[in-house]
Nucleic acid binder design. Structure first.
Lengths: 176, 176
DNA sequence: CCAGATATGTCAACATGACTGTCCCAAATG
DNA sequence: CATTTGGGACAGTCATGTTGACATATCTGG
């Protein structure tokens, strides 16, 4: 690698380096790469268990994400789900119709706005989502446990810091 | 949601709940879901900037991952790269031959084992990887900065906790 | 030194999940 | 009533993963 080990960055908080707190900070490339790699491998590892279940059912990650958010915000509209997933109407359309065909998801006409289709899980769908969630939970709980509760707030803080400020409200909104 | 708010977990460290440290711990579902969601949205957000560059070049994330790890471990073998990416030889083959055709990656016959093809970036490839890395870095540095250095070790700790113990050595090995 | 294991490459077929573009309908909104 | 909005449907494309089968060069153990 020819990229220098030390990278200038205008306005960062204190790092492990011995830098006076008020000075411009230099983050070492290794620290950045470590974050990138842990994010990649950690995310992959967390998903792995659920992937196996999905595979056995002939479903994919796209189905899981839809089930997850419908479970999380029962009664959300198709448009809201599209916004959370960040995909197009056409892409979601296929996933959603498969989930409906399997009897995992059902629609209701919106009450306030009758154009909307409000989504919720069927009993079967809720059971499936619970199985998938249990896998994610097992992994995440282990991560929390191994790191300790003190680490968890740092974990949250950095991840939220990755999300562009304009998008944060949407993420926070999931926390009821 | 019909899943209970409180989930039993055998052997976890202290949480925010008022639980005596030695007792079995109960992690609240919200804390788990928050981790899952932040991991999803944070990862997506970090990648976004690089995705735009890749798109403009007609490359995809698969190419980026290959470039990233070749940059990180210059001279690694095809088999090692397959192991890091967790994909099949055939999947990597396509990506790798595209990168070679574009003059971003080159191969050398292994010295110790002449069956191996050792991979490294060309000058052009290193420049491309540096551009992509700069985007990831921008995002990650902002996350670190907003959270503060103290949070970063918690961030690392939880993510490493997500990785199954057997796989951790491989992740650590990237840190030279 | 030879038989078998290993590292890599390649061809072919297929599945998933994204995309764009277009057209349509029903309901809300002004 | 005209326009906008929420949603559905159809068609085609692309990126990236998969299996399976086979080839070739090289290493390694008996």
């Amino acid at each position: 690698m020819t990229v220098p080990n030390v990278i200038p960055n205008g306005s960062l908080a204190a790092s492990q380096l011995r830098v006076t707190p008020a000075s411009p900070l230099f983050l070492r490339e290794d620290e950045i790469r470590r974050g990138i790699e842990l994010l990649y491998f950690g995310y992959t590892a967390m998903i792995r268990g659920a992937d196996a279940i999905l595979d056995a059912q002939g479903l994919g990650r796209a189905h899981h994400r839809a089930l997850y958010f419908i479970a999380r915000r029962s009664g959300l509209s198709v448009g809201e789900l599209i916004g959370l997933l960040g995909i197009t109407k056409q892409s979601l359309g296929r996933v959603l119709s498969e989930l409906q065909a399997r009897g995992l998801v059902e629609q209701m006409v919106g009450t306030a706005d009758r154009r909307q289709r409000l989504l919720r899980l069927t009993t079967t769908g809720a059971a499936m989502e619970a199985r998938l969630f249990a896998e994610l939970e097992r992994s995440m709980a282990r991560g929390y446990a191994e790191a300790g509760q003190q680490a968890v707030s740092g974990f949250w803080a950095v991840l939220m810091g990755l999300v562009p400020p304009d998008d944060r409200a949407r993420v926070e909104a999931l926390q009821d």
